[in-house]
């Protein structure tokens, strides 16, 4: 496919129109709207239970593509079934695309995702990562970053840190499945859609993880979704990179990262994270960034 060079190249045609029940400024909704511009209407979106499940609400839908919501932990297997169901009936030219949350992807649906990737099913799996179980009210998932407050990792006298666990390195895990794996950001739509376009051409499994800024859970002004998404990349919280055949490719390199503090102070979820918590988070980011720089253009997994 033709690579997009700039925002101007991105098609105006929308397959995700008005009338959804998502929050104003919802990052994951914007992600799907962008994705459909590349995927088009001959796409089946396989959704896991989460915030996006409420986009269609019987008898209405904002989407002009097909949609299957099965349950929370089985988007990848549902997609595998749809893929083979289509192929065996001679409808192989339809796209089968998972749009699943981080909880569904990292946690409860991980087995089904891992199997679909290991079998190299011809599926595009997009994980929109809002770093929590968003739909149930913002609880901890294994994608929740260190130091984030959630409803099940509240800060308190005993535990001022909030989340004390370090989020899973999902890209590495997916890269180790020997499939195409990439991160993406709403602040870099050209990069996102080009990755998606390449995934669409692939004769196998692709995993794209989009940071889905979540105005309600992260607790920020809905106007700031793109700004926050950009800062996440600039401070190394959400580096943009891809892994193909085990090789790492850093898509956005910076000579210097912005301090994570800038990103944290825009969001309520990090309010009152003690200085030693901020320090630890910064150290984790630095460590990951150094690893990416070291292995860039080399075998990573």
């Amino acid at each position: 496919m033709q690579e997009f060079k700039s925002l101007k190249d991105i098609p105006e045609q929308d397959y995700f129109t008005g009338g959804s029940s998502a929050c104003a400024g919802c990052g994951p909704s914007l992600g799907l709207k962008l994705a459909l511009k590349v995927l088009g209407p001959e796409t089946i979106i396989i959704n896991s239970a989460g915030c996006m499940t409420l986009l269609p609400l019987y008898p209405n839908t904002p989407l002009k593509a097909s949609w299957i919501h099965n349950a929370i932990e089985n988007a990848a297997s549902t997609a595998a079934g749809a893929r083979h169901g289509l192929d065996v009936l001679g409808n192989g030219d339809m796209n089968v695309v998972v749009y699943a949350g981080d909880g569904a992807t990292y946690d409860i649906g991980f087995a089904s995702l891992s199997a679909a990737a290991a079998k190299n099913e011809r599926i595009i799996y997009i994980c929109y990562n809002n770093q929590s179980y968003g739909n149930t009210g913002f609880q901890w998932s294994t994608a929740t970053p260190y130091g984030s407050e959630t409803k099940t990792t509240p800060r308190g006298k005993e535990n001022p840190t909030g989340n004390t666990a370090v989020n899973k390195d999902m890209l590495k895990i997916m890269g180790a499945h020997r499939v195409y794996a990439a991160t993406a950001s709403l602040a870099y739509p050209v990069d996102f859609l080009n990755k998606l376009g390449r995934a669409k051409e692939r004769d196998g499994f692709s995993y794209i993880e989009l940071l889905g800024a979540c105005t309600a859970g992260w607790n920020y002004d809905p106007r700031l979704t793109i700004k926050i998404s950009k800062l996440a990349v600039r401070c190394g919280m959400w580096p943009l990179y891809e892994i193909e055949h085990g090789m790492l490719n850093l898509n956005k390199d910076f000579s210097e990262l912005k301090p994570v503090d800038e990103f944290l102070k825009m969001q309520g979820r990090y309010r009152a994270l003690p200085p030693d918590g901020v320090e630890r988070l910064q150290a984790l980011i630095n460590e990951h960034w150094a690893e990416l720089k070291e292995y860039n253009k080399q075998r990573y997994v």
């Binding site: 396989i46 299957i68 297997s77 595998a80 079934g81 749809a82 083979h84 169901g85 089904s112 199997a115």
Partner: peptide, 28 residues
């Protein structure tokens, strides 16, 4: 002929995949 035999990683996924294939019109 005309049948795809698909090894899954759990029965939960078996029924999930069955749903996906049936939703696009396959006999499962």
């Amino acid at each position: 002929p005309g049948t795809f035999f698909d090894r899954m990683e759990s029965e939960h996924s078996v029924m999930s995949a069955a749903v996906g294939a049936a939703a696009v019109g396959s006999r499962v």
